[in-house]
Nucleic acid binder design. Structure first.
Lengths: 244, 244, 244, 244
DNA sequence: GATGAATGAGAGTTCATTCAT
DNA sequence: GATGAATGAACTCTCATTCAT
């Protein structure tokens, strides 16, 4: 699992290198471009997550990255491009983490289980990246909305495929319709998102990724199995049909 | 059910009223403060939802509300207060809608079912309000985040109580621990939120509130029942314990 | 002769008005939009003339106009639009001044004479405006170049018509070809421009517009008459034909 | 006639030279300083002419010259110095071209004629240099204005001497006063400048240097002769003395 | 000698906010 | 009560210029 964003470098103590490469003040200068760029992306993800796209200022990003603003522009062109680069990197990292954890030949429930664990583990490790993908993604009106929406859709698609696979593992009778599967996928992803936020929130029990995944599996898997085998919940005493 | 935001007034042709209340130019003046304020809030919700908090401009809000900018400030103090007022109004309306639909004495599944239906119906009817609550409000580290967090907590609490009630309806054996209940509640709320967004998204099947609620009930209720009776999912072939 | 730019207001002491309209500091606020706009244009013409388009800063313009920068943007949109407005105003004023001085029914030489006097008088009175038209106009690469070029062309066209009229007043024989007339017009305008600059330059005799016009008439009119009647200068001892 | 700017080197494929002076990459290194400097000046003249002083960027100049930016600074100190060097080189080249064409012992009209032809030929051959001298340099109140002003004064002085010589060739009667001569010289130079711009402009007849010079001689020489012999134009019906 | 890496300073532009009528 | 006039502060972005290798 090679995740670009694993190599966080913000504020990280740089490799000392030979004596003389440090200034008296301790600030290392003249890093290779690749390293600087990663530092900037790290800082940008953090600031974008904390403030939102509009409220984030390039000044703050540059300062957090430990470079001057013009350098950010030199390497990453504009605020919009910078944001796009952040989104792409974080989405890619998350997808990598999840797909790497899912063995294609395992049974459906094992795949879901492993995928969920990887998802919760990754979002717990990269809360800022997850904040970017889950919150900023839905903000309307900004020029990058389509990009984010597409990356989010990729995640939903993976889950959709998982559920569809589950259906195929089971018998055919009463299999849910396509739009039901789609709805389920969104429900599952939403539940996972919410749990990720809850698990990472400072208040509360701070459960591990495994516990969180188990909680979700407990409630979702049986429900899924039920659904797949055609059983549905129905109101025992059907409510009056007044509401939409 | 008296929801403030039901009485949308943006751009609506005002009731003419007695002669003399209109100017020659056709613009109605001297509306009662309450009405003006609602107009402003309606406009603000729309603009905030469309653009996001930072990108929304007071100019656009004032223009959409049909009033001058200083009046907006006279009534609502500042952009931040205005946003807070929007959030409070929309949150209150949503809570009202949901709680009004839940009969306290009904069985647990009926309460959940009715609550979900009301939730999906309301969010579908007030997409701007829902966009505010679900997206814009979470983004910013700004001072209104607590308001939204509180609303969300209220909803989670309601659901938590529902689940707890379900547990009590069932026997005691294997009842989930408190933190499990909490996690379940968050999962359920997240699933509902995600479904609401999906159901309202322009792409896709545009299911009715009832269908959406059914989708969620199908997967969640059986899972809940299972959980309540102490059954858990567990990996049939336990994966190697390498991950957290 | 009603020239917009005659009513210069930069730094002008504003009409006092009733007591109480001045602040203690003496700065008058809340002028009608029209007045403020003229102030800004005056300041902009001065700064653009002094620094050139690119080197002129909106800060300096705003300060010279005695207003804040946002007001300049509120009224005049952008630097480019502001420059365009300056060019248009100054070109219009110059054209007005010249055409107003030329009686259409007068003989050709009288028209040229009066036109030149008006030209020199106006450029002497509005050196900044003239600097804008004559210098900035030729700067390449800027987005407004076509506009300035067109306005400059209008001036050349007026002179061209004057010369053509002179030709018609004279007999037909040996009348100069069209492209010769065009060249003459450019030569005359260039001479006038140069004289205007010389007449306004701090060094030297500071001749009046009338004297300047006389100097130009002395050399140009006889030349013109000669040309019109078909006489040309030719090298008495023709130089070897090696040069282009 | 040795004009520095004749040896244009921009983008020119350098003479290969002995093996070993090229790198593997094909880029020639270690050119003699003189050559490098000329390349830079050529590039700078082109970019300054195209964009104007302020809009020209050192990046673009360095790139066009095919060298790195620090090298430009090493050789030419600063943007301002670089611009000054361009102006000086182009001004020197123009003066050389004109003075080389004027035989000191020829009669006055021949000297004027040859000088004008050389002027128009040179400006036509070096449009960028001429653009620099005629437009960019006048605009700015910056420190290189004196350089251009001095060049211009040199030209005016030459013309002034020509006119004075013409006066001496003719009789003394009615010879123009000194300030008249000065004015005439400015008018002539301005006319020539304007014609140079017109002759080089993309629109229009694109006349040759000889034709352009002839056009100017036709109108100016007779005027000069007239003036020298004391004849003046005067309004046949003197206009009312209302204007300055 | 030549250059990739880096920046201080300042540009145009926008916006929430407040007077003074 | 309602508004046209006005601004301080901040933002994105660019550029001439210099190190350190």
């Amino acid at each position: 699992m090679t995740l670009a964003s694993d190599a966080r470098t913000v504020q990280a103590a740089p490799a000392p290198g030979p004596a003389g490469r440090r200034r008296a003040g301790g600030k290392v200068r003249r890093m290779p471009r690749e390293v600087r760029e990663r530092q900037m992306l790290d800082a940008a993800v953090e600031v974008f997550a904390r403030r939102g796209y509009r409220a984030a200022s390039m000044d703050e990003i540059a300062e957090l990255a430990g470079v001057s603003k013009p350098l950010v522009y030199l390497y990453l062109q504009s605020k919009e491009e910078l944001f796009g680069a952040c989104i792409r990197r974080e989405a890619h990292a998350l997808m990598e983490a999840v797909t790497a954890a899912v063995e294609p030949d395992a049974p459906a429930d094992a795949r879901l289980w492993n995928g969920l664990r990887a998802f919760f583990a990754h979002t717990a490790d990269h809360p800022d990246g997850w904040a970017l993908l889950s919150c900023q993604a839905r903000t309307h009106g900004e020029p990058f909305t389509p990009v984010v929406a597409e990356l989010r859709q990729q995640i939903v698609d993976v889950v959709t495929r998982l559920i569809a696979a589950t259906c195929e593992d089971a018998g055919r009778a009463g299999a849910p319709a396509d739009h039901e599967v789609s709805g389920l996928a969104h429900a599952l992803v939403g539940a996972a998102e919410s749990l990720a936020g809850w698990a990472n929130s400072p208040t509360g029990a701070q459960p591990s990724a495994k516990e969180t995944a188990a909680t979700l599996m407990d409630v979702a898997w049986v429900g899924l199995e039920n659904l797949v085998s055609g059983r549905r919940w129905s109101p025992t005493a059907p409510p009056p049909e007044d509401a939409p």
